[in-house]
């Protein structure tokens, strides 16, 4: 855990609302090492989700640099950025964001369509990922046939399937009861400890944040603590 996987330097983000510029992040400097488990905390509107989106490559900074594994993703053109996301980032969303018309197996298999794996290889990988999240017996179930916790586990399997370096989770337990939330946090722990995945989790729940090895606080777009060191 010594090498920096993510290196953020003087990063700022300003949205444009009509003619009005709305600054969201100011001069962020942050280093995250490979294999770290970091929680981004802060009140609503503090910019934590925006920072997560920038790190995940689904948004672009207004200024500053954002190096992930040596690649400045802020400079990548849209198509290259999409390919980069496909192979380097696994997403876990608050509301799971599963395709309702696809069953658990098909949802998890989805990112593998961007690879050159054969159908048999895709099946093997998908079954393994679903087994890892404890849903081997629910492969044929559609999202509306699964509980919230189960849907989030399908989403985690989908995030894992392409073996990304980085997993970003935006309020992964925000829509779950305490018991299901614990299951999900245990699962994220395992991914970090057993598989060595770097995890960045946005949460405003201090109990959730405690599960991370490191907590970073944001307030009004400014990083307050946990920045810099590993």
């Amino acid at each position: 855990m010594s090498e920096s996987l993510i290196s953020i330097r003087q990063l700022s983000k300003t949205y444009q609302r009509g003619t009005q510029p709305v600054p969201v992040l100011f001069d962020i400097n942050l280093e995250i090492a490979e294999g770290e488990y970091v929680s981004l905390m802060g009140p609503s509107g503090s910019g934590k989700s925006t920072l997560l989106n920038l790190i995940a490559g689904i948004d672009k900074p207004s200024s500053g640099s954002l190096l992930i594994d040596g690649v400045d993703i802020a400079m990548l053109p849209e198509n290259d950025l999409a390919s980069w996301r496909a192979s380097n980032v696994g997403f876990v969303f608050q509301f799971y964001n599963l395709m309702p018309v696809l069953n658990a197996f098909e949802n998890v298999e989805l990112p593998l369509l961007l690879t050159d794996l054969s159908r048999a290889e895709r099946r093997e990988h998908t079954e393994t990922a679903l087994a890892m999240v404890g849903l081997a017996d629910r492969m044929d179930h559609y999202p509306n046939e699964l509980s919230g916790g189960q849907q989030q586990r399908v989403a985690i399997a989908r995030a894992l399937i392409s073996d990304p370096t980085l997993i970003v989770a935006d309020e992964p337990t925000g829509d779950l009861d305490r018991h299901s939330a614990d299951d999900i946090l245990n699962l994220l722990d395992r991914l970090n400890v057993e598989l060595g995945k770097t995890i960045i989790m946005v949460t405003h729940d201090p109990k959730c944040a405690e599960r991370a090895r490191r907590r970073v606080h944001l307030e009004k777009g400014v990083l307050l603590s946990g920045s810099g060191g590993h």
């Binding site: 996301r85 997403f91 964001n97 990112p111």
Partner: peptide, 13 residues
Amino acid sequence: REYATLKALGFGD
């Protein structure tokens, strides 16, 4: 939102 999810996962426009 589904289209955005697909794009986030790496699927192109």
